[in-house]
C-alpha cells in the first residue's frame, strides 16, 4: 500500500501523497532544436519541490496525458526549475507543446545525483552525448561557482549533427572560459561545419587528466556511456570514480513499481547516477 511506504522525507511528496505533484507555471519555453525544448517553470503557490541536487530528476506531469521522468538542467533559489525535453513520446510531446502560463505538475526530486562531494580536489572529466548534457549542466554550474574545489575540468559533448547541439549560446560562452576545456563533436556534418566529427570517444585522447585523481561523469545513450566508461577506465580512472546516469522506464520514481529495475538496482532510487563499478557486469547484457 502506497501510504505505508515512507517517501524520501526531502521530497515534495512528503507533504502529502507520495505521488502527488505540485502545480508549476510555465514561465518560458525555448526551442533548442527541431525536437528539443527547454521549459522554465516556477511554483504556482508558496509550495515548491526541494532544491534538486545536480543529477537528480523530477517527474513532470502533463495533465491529462501522463508523467515522465525529466532531469533537472538548472534550478534557482526562488524554486524555478529548468528542464530540457525531447519530443519522443506522448508525454514529452505534450510537455513540448506547453506554452507560457500553462500548468505542469512536478514531484520530486528523486534519486541520487552526481557525487560532487567525492569529486572535490579531483580532476573532472565530463562526457555528454545528446540529451545527456542537461543533467550534467548543473555540475558545470557547481564547478563555476566553486572553481577552486576542483582540479582540471575537461568536457566533451557529442551530438548527432550540428543542428542537434543544444544550449548553443552557452556552449560558446563555456568555450571562452579559461578554467575548463570543452570539446564539441558531432557524428556527421556537412561541409559548413569546421568542428570535430566523430563519436565522443575519439576526443578522449586529447583530454588531459591524472587518472588516479579523476572523477568521470558520463551521461548519454547507453552504448555511448559504456564505451566512454571503458575508455576512461583504460586511461586510469578508477571504475568506482567513473559515474554514469542511467535512463530507464521510471514510472513511480519511489522504488515501488519495478519498471526501472536494472540488475539489482532500481534506477529511480539507487540512481540515476551509478558507479561504473556497480554497473559494469550488466551494461553489456542485452536482456537487462
Amino acid at each position: 500500500m502506497l501510504a505505508d511506504v515512507a517517501p524520501d522525507p526531502t521530497s515534495s511528496a512528503a507533504a502529502g501523497h507520495p505521488l502527488a505533484p505540485l502545480p508549476y507555471r510555465v514561465r518560458a519555453v525555448a526551442t533548442e532544436t527541431a525536437d528539443t525544448t527547454t521549459l522554465t517553470i516556477e511554483p504556482r503557490s508558496t509550495r515548491s519541490v526541494p532544491a534538486p541536487a545536480p543529477g537528480q530528476f523530477v517527474m513532470l506531469y502533463a495533465f491529462g496525458v501522463g508523467e515522465s521522468p525529466i532531469g533537472v538542467s538548472a534550478h534557482r533559489a526562488d524554486g524555478t526549475l529548468v528542464h530540457t525535453v525531447r519530443n519522443v513520446g506522448k508525454v514529452t510531446s505534450a510537455l513540448a507543446r506547453l506554452t507560457p502560463g500553462d500548468t505542469v505538475g512536478v514531484r520530486g526530486p528523486y534519486g541520487r545525483g552526481w557525487p560532487l562531494q567525492e569529486a572535490r580536489g579531483q580532476d573532472l572529466v565530463i562526457v555528454a552525448g545528446g540529451l545527456g548534457l542537461p543533467p550534467l549542466r548543473p555540475v558545470l554550474y557547481e564547478v563555476f561557482e566553486n572553481r577552486d574545489r576542483y582540479g582540471r575540468v575537461e568536457v566533451i559533448y557529442g551530438a548527432r549533427t550540428p543542428k542537434d547541439l543544444i544550449y548553443y549560446e552557452e556552449l560558446q560562452s563555456w568555450r571562452r572560459r579559461s578554467d575548463l576545456r570543452i570539446q564539441v563533436t558531432v557524428d556527421a556534418a556537412g561541409r559548413d561545419w569546421y568542428g570535430d566529427v566523430g563519436v565522443v570517444t575519439t576526443r578522449l585522447p586529447d583530454v588531459r587528466f591524472d587518472g588516479s585523481r579523476t572523477s568521470a561523469f558520463i551521461c548519454g545513450p547507453e552504448i555511448m556511456m559504456r564505451l566512454t566508461a571503458q575508455a576512461v577506465v583504460a586511461r586510469g580512472v578508477r571504475p568506482e570514480a567513473t559515474w554514469v546516469s542511467m535512463e530507464r522506464n521510471m514510472k513511480c520514481a519511489v522504488a515501488l513499481c519495478g519498471h526501472c529495475q536494472f540488475g539489482p538496482t532500481f534506477v529511480c532510487r539507487d540512481g540515476p547516477v551509478l558507479s561504473y563499478r556497480a554497473l559494469e557486469p550488466f551494461l553489456a547484457v542485452k536482456e537487462v
Binding site: A188, A189, G190, R191, W193, D196, V197, G198, D206
Partner: peptide, 23 residues
C-alpha cells in the same frame, strides 16, 4: 591542424564522417 574525411556522391551533398588531427 584538423582534416575532415568526407564522402559524397553526385546527387548527395558531401558528408563529413570523421575528423582527424594532431597526433
Amino acid at each position: 591542424g584538423k582534416v575532415a574525411l568526407e564522402v559524397g556522391a553526385a546527387d548527395h551533398p558531401a558528408l563529413t564522417v570523421q575528423t582527424v588531427g594532431a597526433g
